[in-house]
Design a protein around this nucleic acid. Structure first.
Lengths: 219, 219
DNA sequence: AACACTATCCCGCACTTACGTGATTCTCAC
DNA sequence: GTGAGAATCACGTAAGTGCGGGATAGTGTT
């Protein structure tokens, strides 16, 4: 539940960053901007969580990721647990897919690089509060990248249909004997199939095969 | 590279749908709209690919997913291979995460439900061409859902730090003996650790443990 | 001081796996 | 129609696995 918005009142922001100078600097910039107001500066996630329970929550929290102790990702999760209505924007130097992915899934609404200008930050705020679209173009692109990366099936190692059946049952945890019974063939047949599968996947154990199948989304 | 835009010229659209009546209807609606022009109607992906090589590509292709033969997902991939600059919007009755996910990863720029009004379609076009954001709010939300779903870590089954070490090496494909050597403990210790791990994960084989670890993103 | 938890170590047995080395059909392409 | 894959079946063995029993020692809680 957002009780204020950009057009009617001051927008209340909290800044969380262990770098004291940076946080203070950002807070000043915010306070110098019309319509924005920095209602709190914090230097750890624990402080924020403590205050969130005592005071009324802000509209938006700008949060660093690279904390000692509880990191920003964990921080977002906890914040969203205590105050689900608060929009959290990650503010960080990390721009790798993994961090963005984790931040988004933890409940972050946006993700800005620390070099972002105040204009960019305000634009992100508008996008999040007014438009209701919980991401900015930059993250959107990153997310697409991650998506594409997640679905690079490409090679199927020339696994035949029958071998795929066997492989599926292998992943389901069945022993050779159980697979044989299920497919109405002999133990030896499954044994041979598995040898061929192992050769094609270039592994030498059922564990290796399972890992390869799950990690590369075969089947 | 987009050579035209909404403000200066006609925007050239192609419609691809095996439902002849629907495609024709949509094409007419498009042609009745100022600034839009339907440059081609196709009833299969093959037709589109053929024409793409002969003619200059359109600005946007509106494509159905549920084709007999080559489906829309495969179609998008091929289209983007031949003409990467073309923006493809999927137009479909399927709204499940799996289809959206696959369409996006195949290179689709947008995803609209077939019940979408022409207004909605035009809005999507604007978002894609002008804003450069390769998705609309609706898809954005869906993508967030998929992301969240992909990363449901939740339970860690009370695995201890030491057990995690063992588990990691297990997933790496090492035997009990190899794990023991690597951690400078005896075979029996690893054996016991694995028993405890199996109990916690509620499995009874290394295969089961590996599957659980990889599928639920433990570790 | 008693208790729970973790990590470590040990024995033995039935079972499963990985692999070497064969074989017989069947289909499909050249 | 010959040959290459695919799918099926077979024997044997060394190594590895899962689990039934144990045990000891340290750490931290209450």
């Amino acid at each position: 539940m957002i009780t204020r918005n950009l057009s009617t009142e001051q927008l209340d922001l909290w800044v969380v960053d262990d770098n004291v100078a940076f946080a203070k600097n950002l807070a000043e910039l915010i306070n110098q901007t019309e319509g924005l107001q920095c209602g709190g500066i914090f230097h750890s996630c624990e402080e924020v969580l403590h205050d969130l329970e005592a005071e009324s929550p802000p509209d938006v929290i700008l949060m660093d990721i690279g904390f000692p102790g509880m990191n920003g990702i964990e921080g977002v999760k906890r914040v969203k647990m205590v105050a689900p209505a608060v929009q959290v924007i990650m503010l960080t130097v990390f721009e790798d897919n993994d961090n963005i992915f984790r931040a988004i899934t933890a409940g972050a609404s946006g993700y800005l690089h620390k070099s972002a200008t105040l204009d960019e930050i305000i634009n992100a705020l508008k996008a999040i509060l007014v438009g209701g679209v919980p991401m900015n173009p930059h993250i959107a692109r990153k997310m697409l990248e991650i998506f594409k990366h997640l679905s690079t099936t490409t090679s199927d190692y020339g696994i035949t249909a029958r071998e795929k059946e066997v492989l599926q049952l292998l992943v389901d945890g069945l022993s050779k004997k159980q697979i044989a019974d299920k497919l109405f063939v002999s133990f030896h047949t499954i044994d041979t199939h598995l040898r061929n599968i192992y050769a094609k996947l270039q592994v030498n154990s059922r564990s290796g095969a399972i890992v390869k199948v799950l990690k590369e989304h075969l089947l």
